[in-house]
Design a protein around this nucleic acid. Structure first.
Lengths: 341, 341
DNA sequence: TGTCACTTTTACATCGATGTAAATTTGATG
DNA sequence: CATCAAATTTACATCGATGTAAAAGTGACA
């Protein structure tokens, strides 16, 4: 910047004023400075600016794994929303080391980010203190009890209830569910199970524990394995609702290999509406969380908190919408329904 | 840091020495400083350090869209590889605005990153100058002619040839191909087409232009649309090789809806080995680029160049491996082959 | 021409950490 | 106990930008 100032024959502060759009700068001065800037190919040193102004315009995003389609699509949406507000996004994967999810989150504060959007896989009660820091954080998904962080999520209970009611409305009565945590009800899995149970209750159907199948992780392979267990158990069932689409796609794979027809023998419903689900065979009925809405809200709230600068507004909790996307896996092949979304 | 120094009763430089692991610091001093650090909950200001040392330990990653599984999985691998070397990753999506891919890349230099890994969708000859900057960049995928950047890629020609030879070895003779660019042969698409042509030549089969189907983008919907066009054209074919898995999955979807059986009527082969492909029905035969190898090489080369600091080693070109993963879409359902990878 | 109000530019201090080189302490040795 | 080398610690300048406040420039009007 010194060089630019020298070339333009002005002080460095004037150059700074021109570049940061200060209003009281004469036209000829601005032109002269800009010429010098482009002649020297000068670009501001972001680190120095950050040091001086105290912010970096970088948001952190912590997700379990980008290779899971749901998180990849979420990251896509967050990057777009942040970009529209002039922020860039630094991504960290919390599951690079399974046991260190929370540590990773607090480590991120060391990076020069202004705030963090955190999509937890499973936050245990003891972890809450780690989260409750004096740093702007927006938590996505299941509300973490006890934190004062901002929070954006859909109602997992309602959405899962809607998914379950859908198969019940098709006349299915033996509805299995895949995705509970082997080590007890926590977080998202607990809420989704709750929704399932409520739906059954509404139809006066008793919960059959043999139809509740756990899955340690929510990857396709776990869906395959869970469905294989269910089929092997010989417990009769005519529908299955899965806690995410990956599980459902894996389950469909296993059903197919067992010779069971979808949806004739078993209706399948997923959760997340990842892109695959519209193109699988059969295409998958699922719950679509409004990802763009989630991302937009998270980014807006985070930036608002960052820029509120000192003022400490009360934590906000935003509930986003969802919709039930009905496809072939529950109602059968119907030409023309491919693009239903 | 000043406060920490005051509390510990030492100079700020001593604190700095302790924190940056300078070797000549006495044990009692180190302990005293660390106590003060934890008592005050002090954390270094990364911007200030960046300004002083001139680097940020952040790598940029520019990909078209994270919502495409291939790029999400690539990003995952890059983040892991970078993390292992103590770097974090800032991700930018080049297709947020289609026409501005290259601009986005040069914009990234404004962010405080030490280097950039760039996975271009399509670089046109005129864009080369923009890329040829005095800044560490590693380009992934098809080599961009004329740049002096480092470069990591598999041989698209060989890999596509292997994919095509595979269906030819199964006795198929009318092999269609999906994915050429409507506006002429460029980049990756050109190389893959080249591989296809070479394979046919090796079996003395003439290229039939009616079997070459274009796809503007390589998403599932384009695969559906391309296959619908091919089927509608009534040109006979008994196999199709697609330039990526998303196209192949879309094509399978369209085939299924046309009542054609896979692989009995049409064998399908993809390219990328995204996670879906192992779980689709039928599972998809595809080319697996060694993503971890690509990511590892890209990160290593980039960091090497960043840390070489002044010395300007000759551009490196690394060719990574690939493998043909044979699944049901070419050879039919075979129990126990699910995990073939 | 002088005064005032306003615009434009400048000089200087500062953000927080670290490199340099000099000052100080430590301890081994004659 | 004096001396010297090595180990520790310190003071100060510096990275590059921007906020502050004061100085210089401009033009309108009496």
């Amino acid at each position: 910047m010194r060089d630019v100032a020298a070339l333009a024959g002005v002080s460095v502060k004037t150059v700074s004023n021109v570049l940061s759009g200060y209003e009281h700068v004469s036209e000829k001065m601005r032109a002269r400075v800009m010429d010098a800037v482009s002649e020297l190919g000068y670009e501001v040193n972001v680190s120095a600016r950050n040091l001086r102004v105290g912010s970096t315009r970088v948001l952190g995003l912590a997700v379990p794994e980008l290779s899971q389609a749901y998180f990849a699509e979420l990251a896509d949406a967050v990057i777009r929303a942040a970009g529209a507000r002039g922020y860039t996004v630094l991504i960290e994967q919390t599951l690079v080391d399974r046991s260190l999810e929370i540590t990773t989150v607090s480590d991120m504060r060391r990076h020069s980010i202004d705030g963090l959007i955190y999509s937890p896989l499973a936050v245990h009660p003891g972890d809450v203190d780690q989260l409750d820091v004096d740093f702007p954080i927006v938590v996505l998904g299941e509300k973490v009890v006890g934190t004062r962080s901002d929070h954006v999520a859909m109602s997992n209970i309602e959405a899962m209830k809607a998914a379950t009611l859908h198969v019940l409305s098709l006349g299915r009565r033996r509805v299995a569910v895949i995705g509970t945590q082997p080590d007890g009800p926590v977080g998202t899995a607990a809420s989704r199970l709750h929704g399932y149970v409520e739906a059954l209750a509404e139809h006066d159907i008793a919960v059959d524990v043999d139809l509740i199948v756990s899955a340690a992780l929510w990857h396709r392979e776990n869906g395959v394995e869970a469905m294989e267990r269910l089929v092997a158990s010989r417990v009769p069932f005519d529908a299955v609702v899965c806690f995410n689409d990956a599980l459902a796609l894996g389950a469909m794979r296993a059903l197919h290999r067992s010779g069971l027809r979808i949806p004739e023998d078993v209706a399948v419903v997923g959760f997340d509406d990842i892109e695959d689900s519209a193109y699988s065979t059969p295409s998958l009925t699922t719950i679509s969380p409004h990802r763009d809405e989630i991302a937009q809200n998270a980014v807006d709230i985070l930036i608002e908190r960052i820029e509120s600068d000192g003022a400490r507004p009360a934590p906000r909790h935003v509930e986003t919408g969802y919709s039930l996307v009905i496809r072939e896996s529950s109602t059968g092949l119907s030409v023309g329904q491919l693009a239903t979304t």
